[in-house]
Computed example of a mutant assay.
Amino acid sequence: MSKKNHQNTQLVSSGRKKAYTHGVVNPVVQRASTIVFDTVADLKQAAKTRGDKTLFYGRRGTTTHFALQEAITELENGAGCALYPCGAAAISQALLAFLKTGDHILMVDNVYEPTRDFCDKILAGLGITTTYYPPTIGSQIKQYIKPNTKVLFLESPGSITMEIQDVPAMVKVANKHNIMTMLDNTYGNGLHYRPLEHGVDISIQAATKYIVGHSDVMMGVAVANEKYWPQLREQSYLLGQCTSADDAYLALRGLRTMAVRLNQHEKAAIEVAKWLEKHELVDHIRHPAFESCPGHAFFKRDFDGSNGLFSFVMKTGSQKAIDAFLDSLTHFKMGFSWGGFESLVTANLTMKGLRSNTGWEHGPVIRLHIGLEDIDDLIADLAQALNIYQKNL
């Protein structure tokens, strides 16, 4: 039986060794800073094997953390998983673990805005340069490679505009030039997309989103292959990255129901998107499962499913119309993040400041996260808000 057929069972069973659960269903919450040792020999052995799932120091983790790391490592089919206090930290610290002054990175142009800010404001100050490349460039990424290029960073689908990248083709080029690859896999979540199986070296997620699933924990994770896991693990430790045992427990609890939640998110989002696609004010849908989304063929080839996140592009608009639209919504709340049980909305009149290589020649973009509310209520909410949008054009 294929890995795909085992995934629901895997989500329920992984990270539940007796050493973590102590005879109950869920791993215990083990909070600790100092780990005490009975003998000098025990202390030396813990220091020697601190890269394994061995109690050493609170920042290295406890059995609660080990259970979560093991579960996510298995989900993403990697060699090891590092935990971080948020998704942005997972991205920034993974990059810092492998970059030094004088290095160059290739960053996809539709990247998550905090990642762009980190490159432009932090890495630039450290003497690390960034080149932004078009998200649909595929194997032609080779034209952007420099002698000092160390990392190719991908995000597929991309933030807001949802372009899907030809990851295998780009990884092939990167490997030829001895460039490591990282991918923000928050959308793919490890259940619907596993980057390491497509040759990517490090898969990063904001576990805040679908892994936790309830908008009450900030957490990031990075899963590496065998080649890069030792360096990611040690550098992240040296950079002081850690999470609380309570948050690790909540992430594990969310993981158990992620498949069920994703099925509902996906079903509802597709139904809402199909309704929007027919609306007279809407130009096109940016949902990976729709042919109107750039890179849709790669989505069909590489992904096992979608989720609740997508965008739609208006034919025309103004800031006044957008503001009126947002203010009139009831079930869709305005707020950052996504992946929780609630429906959310954000909007961009233009993509100014969010791209530097590729332009945006379309109308305003409205991004939705479809939560677990009744679909008819969500559509009715959007219908009345679009009427108000039209009145304010």
Rank of each mutant, 00 (worst) to 15 (best):
I322Q: 09
M219E: 08
R16L: 11
Q143C: 08
H296R: 09
M180G: 02
A47K: 10
L43N: 09
L123H: 01
L126C: 11
Q10L: 15
S156V: 04
K209V: 07
T49Q: 14
T316Q: 13
T208K: 03
D376T: 14
A88V: 15
W360Q: 05
R50I: 09
D201E: 09
V25T: 12
A169E: 11
I137L: 12
G127Q: 08
D103L: 02
M1S: 14
I128P: 01
L96N: 11
A380V: 07
K172N: 12
A97P: 01
T130K: 02
F153T: 00
A383T: 11
Y132I: 07
N178K: 15
S236R: 01
W275E: 12
L126T: 08
L281C: 09
V282H: 00
C81G: 03
L276V: 06
V260P: 02
H284L: 06
G188F: 00
V12N: 12
I375H: 03
T350H: 12
Q93K: 05
L152Y: 00
T34N: 14
I285S: 01
Q7G: 07
S14F: 12
G240A: 09
G339H: 03
G158V: 08
G80C: 03
P135F: 10
M219H: 04
Q69C: 11
L329N: 08
Q165T: 06
Q30E: 14
S2G: 11
K267E: 14
I204L: 04
S343T: 04
K176S: 10
R355A: 14
V24N: 13
S311F: 02
P195H: 10
T161K: 08
Y249Q: 09
K172A: 14
F336A: 14
L154M: 15
Y228Q: 03
Q384G: 04
D184F: 01
N225K: 05
L191H: 06
K320A: 15
L281P: 02
A324W: 05
G127M: 06
G15R: 02
Q93A: 06
I160G: 02
A94Y: 00
V167C: 06
R194A: 11
D302T: 05
H214R: 15
S318P: 07
T358R: 06
L344T: 11
K17C: 10
V212M: 08
Q241Y: 02
A174L: 05
K333L: 14
T181F: 01
D283M: 07
H331K: 11
T115W: 01
T186W: 00
D52N: 12
T39R: 06
D246C: 08
T136L: 14
S139L: 06
G125Q: 09
K274S: 13
T34S: 15
V28F: 09
T346A: 12
L252T: 04
R16G: 08
W338V: 06
N5Y: 12
S292E: 12
D120P: 03
A97K: 00
A79M: 04
G58Y: 05
H296M: 06
A251H: 01
L95T: 01
N348S: 15
P230K: 07
G295E: 05
E197P: 03
K227T: 15
S343E: 06
P195Y: 07
L55E: 11
P168S: 05
A79Y: 00
G61D: 04
P85A: 08
N77A: 15
